[in-house]
Amino acid sequence: MRSRHSLVLAAGLAVLVLSFLASLAFGAVALPIKEVARALAGGDVSGQVHEIAVGLRLPRTASAAAVGAALAVAGVLLQGALANPLASPDVIGVTGGAGFGATLILLAFPDQAPLVPLGALIFGLVAAGIVLTLGSAGPRGGSIERVVLAGIAIAALFGAATTSLMVAYPDRVSSAIGFLAGGLVSDGWSSLETSGPYLAAGFVGAVLLARPLDRLSLGDDLAASLGTSPRRTRLLAGIAAAALAAAAASIAGLLGFLGLIVPHLVRLAAGTATHRFLIPACAIVGAAVLLLGDTLARTVVAPIELPVGPLMVVLGVPWFLWLLRKTA
């Protein structure tokens, strides 16, 4: 089993490195790879090459890796904490909240467009905060069902609010489509700077929660007897997942699908549900998958960019179903 883990990790790392390099090397404009490398190394290149390689591709590649890893880890945390294989950032309302925050700024306050990442982050966290508060309230510190039901209600509420905004500003809807469809943008480092602290806190939290989540998977009573508080673990996992998912949404819009599917892919490939393995492995695979998806989205019909969200669903679902059937 350990060798299978190592194999999956090694393969994931190899794909991550290759996809990272591919993301830097390929884009809408064909640049010689040597030129790109020289630009990234700070060498002497034309202003145009420098702007494309350093100003656009490098931050986008870093953002794609961070977002992919964040969504996948958020998915693992939620699936573990809620003991629900269908859990993803959508379940705790982050996606709905972030979508509303971004749409509000883009449609109602178009002159404040640079605040979109911040708006998505704040509303994503607010939505998750409401869900987790409602879910952990009540007798015996709430329940998983309460979290899920609160999540569905809050997601519906923010979804309706987003739709209402689109109805109120029908002529401005085009500005929000890119965000709602999900996809990376070339806005330099600004989104990553805004969301960086939340991503860092979420990743650290995820690593610290690996062992408690493993204990939780044995059942609440056994986890408690081993010194892990199920309620506290669920709440902390929810908070870490919310930070990761909201930060990811603020950078790349709504890509919740990744958070659902990558943990399953890794579980199916590695044959394990141990969080101490799943969390780093999902971070690696999530980053690799989004890097590949974004590189494809940028290059398939270049210079037109496809939204990476739908593209990944179209490509990812058949692959996932094949894997599911193979391992059944």
């Binding site: 884009g27 809408a28 404009v29 494309i52 890119g178 940028r298 270049a302 210079p303 037109i304 960019e305």
Partner: peptide
């Protein structure tokens, strides 16, 4: 209408 790459805008 289409969303075009910022790289293409630079180039």
């Amino acid at each position: 209408f289409a969303r075009i790459s910022d790289e293409a805008v630079v180039a």
